[in-house]
Amino acid sequence: KLETFPLDVLVNTAAEDLPRGVDPSRKENHLSDEDFKAVFGMTRSAFANLPLWKQQNLKKEKGLF
């Protein structure tokens, strides 16, 4: 399991300012399950079932792209 970080560490943070080991294209993977659901309004599995373009739009909207 990946290390999780608080939302404010990941949202609207440039790649070079992210904690070590965080993939800038997969910031959402480093949210706790609770934060993930609070941000996206759905579970990880529901998010994973969305088309890629919709996932990317949601990530942009939430500052996690």
Score class of each variant (00 low, 15 high):
residue 60 K to N: 06
residue 10 L to N: 03
residue 44 R to Y: 04
residue 45 S to R: 12
residue 9 V to D: 11
residue 5 F to P: 14
residue 58 L to W: 02
residue 35 D to L: 00
residue 14 A to D: 06
residue 65 F to I: 15
residue 52 L to E: 15
residue 18 L to Q: 08
residue 4 T to I: 04
residue 10 L to W: 02
residue 33 D to Y: 05
residue 14 A to S: 12
residue 61 E to W: 03
residue 39 V to S: 07
residue 52 L to C: 11
residue 48 A to P: 00
residue 29 N to Q: 15
residue 8 D to G: 07
residue 57 N to W: 09
residue 41 G to K: 14
residue 42 M to P: 00
residue 25 S to K: 13
residue 27 K to T: 14
residue 30 H to S: 11
residue 17 D to F: 09
residue 53 W to I: 10
residue 39 V to Q: 07
residue 31 L to P: 05
residue 6 P to D: 15
residue 17 D to H: 06
residue 60 K to Y: 04
residue 43 T to P: 09
residue 2 L to V: 13
residue 52 L to R: 08
residue 9 V to F: 14
residue 24 P to R: 05
residue 40 F to S: 01
residue 36 F to A: 00
residue 46 A to D: 12
residue 26 R to K: 15
residue 38 A to P: 01
residue 40 F to D: 01
residue 10 L to Q: 10
residue 1 K to D: 08
residue 52 L to M: 14
residue 46 A to C: 12
residue 48 A to Q: 06
residue 36 F to W: 05
residue 25 S to N: 15
residue 40 F to W: 01
residue 24 P to S: 10
residue 28 E to R: 02
residue 53 W to K: 13
residue 6 P to F: 01
residue 30 H to Q: 04
residue 1 K to L: 02
residue 41 G to D: 13
residue 1 K to H: 01
residue 24 P to I: 06
residue 39 V to N: 05
residue 36 F to P: 00
residue 53 W to F: 15
residue 61 E to K: 11
residue 20 R to E: 14
residue 14 A to N: 07
residue 34 E to W: 08
residue 16 E to F: 02
residue 44 R to Q: 08
residue 53 W to D: 12
residue 8 D to W: 07
residue 16 E to D: 14
residue 2 L to F: 15
residue 61 E to L: 09
residue 18 L to P: 04
residue 29 N to H: 15
residue 59 K to E: 04
residue 58 L to I: 13
residue 18 L to V: 06
residue 10 L to F: 02
residue 28 E to A: 04
residue 7 L to N: 05
residue 65 F to H: 15
residue 42 M to D: 02
residue 26 R to E: 10
residue 35 D to T: 03
residue 34 E to H: 08
residue 22 V to A: 06
residue 51 P to D: 06
residue 15 A to M: 06
residue 65 F to Y: 09
residue 32 S to K: 08
residue 47 F to Q: 00
residue 65 F to A: 15
residue 32 S to H: 10
residue 51 P to T: 02
residue 47 F to Y: 07
residue 19 P to F: 00
residue 21 G to W: 05
residue 54 K to P: 00
residue 57 N to R: 11
residue 25 S to H: 08
residue 15 A to F: 07
residue 55 Q to M: 02
residue 2 L to W: 06
residue 22 V to Y: 04
residue 26 R to T: 13
residue 37 K to D: 13
residue 9 V to P: 07
residue 63 G to H: 07
residue 44 R to T: 03
residue 51 P to V: 00
residue 34 E to M: 12
residue 52 L to Y: 09
residue 22 V to P: 02
residue 24 P to N: 06
residue 42 M to T: 05
residue 15 A to C: 06
residue 18 L to E: 06
residue 5 F to R: 08
residue 58 L to V: 07
residue 33 D to I: 04
residue 60 K to M: 08
residue 64 L to A: 08
residue 63 G to M: 06
residue 43 T to D: 14
residue 5 F to Y: 15
residue 49 N to R: 13
residue 45 S to M: 13
residue 11 V to H: 05
residue 57 N to S: 13
residue 58 L to F: 06
residue 47 F to K: 02
residue 34 E to Y: 14
